[in-house]
Amino acid sequence: MKFIEIRALHEWLDRLAQEMTLIAPTAVGPQEKAPGSRNPAAQGQQVFYRQVEGAAQIAWDFTRTALSAREHFMPKTETLFTIETGPDGKAVLHETKLEQPRVFFGIRPCDARGLRVLDAVMLGQEPADVYYAQRRENTTLVGLACPQMWEDCFCNSVGGAPDAADDVDILLIQVEGGFAVQVVTEKGERLATGMGLQEVEGLELPQPKLNEQFALPTQQQWLASFNDVYWQRVGDRCLSCRICSYVCPTCRCFDVRDETVVTPQGERIVRRVRAWDSCQGVNYRVQAGGANPRANLEQRLRNRFYCKYYYVPIDYAADGCVGCGRCVTACPVNIDIREVLQDLARREPA
């Protein structure tokens, strides 16, 4: 088994940060707890995957990040191309340039698995999305196994594991004095050459503590439940916000618009941007002329659950949910996908 000492790891990360873009979990926001709130997001700093300048900025002791790894592969906002006027007065399109090579350090196994879902949607069928593809190609994933499953996590119920190496290029598992290192892919091997790994005999890997596993609804149960009053009852307390979609590692809906901005120098720039969108928004499905087949809140809420567990598996041959538990923790009205799954799974198939 390969092994790296903590100090050697830090030195390697510091070197990496000099050579290329290093993304890693890092604490963001005010240090002090917000005075007087039950909001779990306001209890001190939250951890995000962000670009860091060295190992010192990395948060080592975190559960899961506030936002998933998705934001670095499908950014919240990106420019698809700018539209300029050429010398002949005709429009010229300039596509967004390639990004530099990146190392994504400390990605949790569930987030890496989320990329598998996004891969299926964005790359799995022709034509592939070139913006997503270039970020994916340029990034090497160094995973950091969870020492245990956290509150609200359910990766083990949807086929994942807190120490799964399936979707990363290199996986680190914390052990006494450092990390056990599994080099998974060729891309990982190329990166690992500079790590200075040691070979250690008989290294014992810790067994992460798991949360209780539960059974998922069958396809028949999903099919039979579509028109159930159950969705109205869950929808009763839904606020129709977009938290669940935006913290999700596998949600990928986007909106595209053109915008014109004027720089402080007075230059006009016209560009087409793409930004996150969510099926929970009221106007998401409105058609020209005003028809809205998903005008009711419970229809929109239902769509999100079906998208993860019914539509994506059929359309893209991928599991739509990785069990990261972010939507469970972040939902302000405690709409708990685990509860929904278990409620449906308890039903008699029609």
Partner: peptide, 12 residues
């Protein structure tokens, strides 16, 4: 305080 209490980013 409803706005602040639901903010997933803890913005005051």
């Amino acid at each position: 305080n409803a706005c602040e209490a639901v903010c997933p980013m803890g913005i005051p």
